[in-house]
Design a protein around this nucleic acid. Structure first.
Length: 734
DNA sequence: GACCTGCTGCGGTTTG
């Protein structure tokens, strides 16, 4: 066969970056007939082969990140193998999804087989045979979830040091998915514990979507040394974006199925009835009802139904089937999905991305948009916003959904996105990690625990005093117990937690029913609200009738029905709106220009919102009286708004958080101002005291073992912003 | 009205 000339180098990396790759790896690249490596792939070779620096690689989905990491990693491993130097797993790749691991396993197997490096995929669906094989002969590359790695520490702690003795690289896939989350705190701790078990540092390599603050991501990757991480970014060629925000009005009070909703769905149908498209919605119920509504249009048109719902309550099989339909280019296919398809699961390029309703976050909107634009074709995004007809209340007149959407699109175009909270210690996850370390070593001293978990910043911000307080609280709850020698062991409750498989995840989930048909399980639904025999359900894009509920087995049996199903009552918590978005909403109200990406109806809605903003007098005031209630408009994120409510309650005023605003019943503006002035004069309470007043402070899996004092401190740090709230109250009183 | 993610070990039954 003919050999194309090797890919050429760029100025920045020198002409011989490709030459640094192992011969077997070079051969594999030639066989792929790649005419050149992408810039980020070339830039990554030198620092990764050098092995003496951590690397953060940021590029859009399908930007070739996986190869950028594994061409050099495999080169190093292949050379080691030739010198017979390795006796253990040399590279661990931590990934947030099982589907991504399967994907990567397929992609890497061919390259690695070529150079004789074993690749092992390891997660809950992988059989015990493959796992045993790796435990007996540890070597090569391990692709694993944080939860499975956690399980390895807990159930076979004594073997970890041997398995990872030769560890050179820790790769984190989709790093942005971990930032600022419980799972992220766990991941950080696991990386730290891996290096401690190995007895040396490994080069950490993070793969991320392009995010606004890559320095913050670097700091997450190597706490305390983020400024020494090598950052490689491929911002792409600045792909052209075709964007339209479409406005609709619907009278929600009279008929939820009203005419304007149909108008929006009717237009949407015309946009997505052909080609390959993704419609993102903000809830699982909406994914079901929207897919059903679109399917009805298809039925009326007598065309094969191209619409499939996709969300987290559907079984893995049904989801894989939907993904397969979208990938298959021979027939039109449109998937109606929630955030499940934001992460990097490969569904190929799609023609058009649609967002129904306000996007959840700017970062999420960017991820969703990134799915569109095949090759050099422009990315195409439609956003549909439905506001109420005949608005009466200030909230209705302000057209908040549309204005929030405009603010988010503007921020997206400026490359801004929500900053993750990386500073606050995640005490719930620290509880999990304490138990895990005790299981790993069969007990440990308090000092060893502190060194292993908190030193070097795996849990930044946890000082020795806080750690001691935490251990005391855990002792009081039977999570840990102390021997006379001082050795800490899991307590009775701790043992129970450790012995159940649900221990390995850092996040919490509620128990659910499995929805079962004669052909197999379709997915899950909440146990509450209760479902009765005979009820009609819309699920997986079809209608079903419940024939039996088996509470003991946690199963609901269903049979196909002819239609009329309603989506199950999925439970959920709101996604908080960030400070940056709310502050920019105020700018949008104060502005006068009408963005070109608004259709006529959306432009009218924006003008209506701006007019209401001026009429209510919000340009100068942040307070308004309506229908016996005083309304406050802080134009700040949900965290600040929530804190304002707590501060008002602190001085005896009943205040409620309602989206962007605070409502205060039965207190006229003047009296409220007086109370706020006194609060400002007296100065704010200690945030921990303020938190102490909050009835239910539990937010994370193990929060209820923290004890009142630590829980208040944790809540104050994570959920409150007292300085931010005081700034608004000072404006109000001033 | 409101996202997503993950999971061991063992005992039992069935099948070739």
């Amino acid at each position: 066969m003919t050999r194309p000339s090797p890919p050429s180098g760029s100025e920045k990396t020198g002409p011989d970056a490709f030459a640094l790759l192992h011969r077997g790896v070079q051969r594999w690249v030639w066989e792929r007939r790649w005419t050149s490596l992408r810039p980020i792939q070339e830039q990554a070779i030198r620092p990764i082969i050098g092995g003496d620096t951590d690397v953060l690689l940021a590029a859009a989905t399908a930007g070739g990140k996986t190869e950028a990491v594994f061409l050099p990693v495999c080169s190093v491993l292949a050379r080691d193998a030739e010198h017979g130097e390795s006796t253990g797993i040399q590279a661990v790749c931590l990934s947030p999804l099982k589907a991504l691991i399967n994907d990567q396993h397929t992609r890497l197997t061919d390259l690695c087989a070529r150079i004789g490096i074993p690749v092992t995929a390891w997660h809950g669906d992988i059989g015990v045979i493959q796992k045993d094989r790796l435990r007996e002969e540890p070597s090569g590359i391990l692709l694993i979830t944080p939860e499975s790695l956690e399980a390895m520490f807990v159930t076979r702690g004594s073997t970890v040091a041997r398995l990872f003795a030769d560890l050179r690289y820790i790769v984190v896939d989709e790093l942005h998915a971990f930032l600022g989350t419980a799972r992220g705190a766990q991941l950080r701790s696991l990386m730290h514990r891996l290096e401690r078990a190995a007895g040396h540092r490994a080069a950490r390599i993070g793969l991320s979507a392009t995010l606004a603050d890559l320095r913050a991501a670097a700091e997450f990757l190597r706490p305390g040394e983020g400024d020494r991480v090598t950052i490689l970014e491929d911002r792409g060629a600045g792909k052209q974006l075709l964007l339209q925000v479409r406005g609709y009005v619907a009278d929600l009070r009279e008929d939820a199925e009203g005419g304007a909703c149909d108008a929006a769905t009717g237009h949407l149908y015309q946009v997505v009835r052909t080609g390959h498209n993704m419609v993102f919605v903000n809830s699982r119920a909406e994914a079901e009802s929207c897919a059903a509504a679109l399917s009805e249009f298809a039925e009326q048109d007598r065309i094969p139904n191209p619409f499939t719902p996709h969300h987290g309550s559907l079984s893995a099989e049904l989801r894989a089937h939907a993904e397969q339909r979208l990938k298959n280019r021979s027939a039109p296919a449109t998937i109606v999905c929630t955030a499940t398809l934001e992460l990097g699961i490969d569904v190929g390029w799609v023609d058009t991305v649609v967002q129904l309703g306000t996007p959840p976050t700017v970062a999420g909107l960017r991820q969703r948009l990134g799915r569109s634009g095949r090759g050099s074709a422009p990315a195409k995004l439609y956003v549909y916003i439905t506001e109420q007809s005949l608005p009466e209340t200030p909230v209705e007149r302000l057209r908040l959904d549309l204005v929030q959407t405009v603010a988010m699109v503007e921020l997206l175009l400026r490359r801004w996105c929500e900053p993750p909270d990386l500073e606050t210690p995640h005490l719930s996850t620290l509880v999990q990690q304490i138990l895990s370390v005790l299981a790993q070593h069969g007990g440990a001293s308090a000092l060893r625990l502190y060194r292993e978990l908190c030193a070097d910043g795996a849990f930044p911000g946890v000082d020795e005093q806080t750690f001691a307080d935490l251990l005391r609280a855990l002792g009081a709850h039977g999570i840990v117990t102390q021997e006379r020698s001082g050795l800490l062991l899991p307590g009775k409750v701790g043992e129970t937690l450790l012995n159940h498989y649900s221990f390995y995840s850092a996040f919490d989930t509620v128990e659910e029913y499995t929805i079962a048909t004669v052909d197999g399980d379709m997915g899950t639904m909440p146990i509450s609200p209760a479902v009765d025999t005979g009820a009609l359900l819309a699920f997986g894009g079809r209608s079903w009738q419940v024939v039996e509920v088996k509470p003991a087995e946690r199963r609901v049996l269903v049979v196909p029905a002819r239609g009329g199903g309603v989506p199950p009552g999925f439970a959920g918590v709101p996604v908080p709106v960030s400070d940056g978005v709310r502050q920019h909403m105020r700018e949008v109200y104060l502005g006068t220009d009408v963005p070109r990406y608004l259709d006529e109806a959306a432009a009218i809605l924006l003008e209506e919102g701006r007019m209401a903003f001026r009429e209510i007098g919000l340009a100068d005031l942040h307070v308004h009286e309506y229908d016996g209630e005083t309304l406050l408009f802080p134009w700040r994120g949900d965290r600040v708004v929530e804190t304002i409510c707590h501060l008002l309650r602190w001085v005896g005023i009943k205040a409620a958080h309602a989206g962007a605003l605070v409502t205060v019943p039965d207190v006229p503006p003047e009296r409220l101002r007086g109370a706020v002035s006194r609060l400002v004069k007296a100065g704010p309470p200690d945030p921990v005291d303020l938190a102490g007043m909050v009835a239910d402070k539990r937010r994370h899996k193990y929060d209820h073992y923290l004890g009142e004092e630590l829980l208040s401190r944790s809540y104050a740090a994570q959920a409150l912003d007292v300085p931010g709230a005081m700034r608004f109250l000072e404006q109000l009183s001033g």
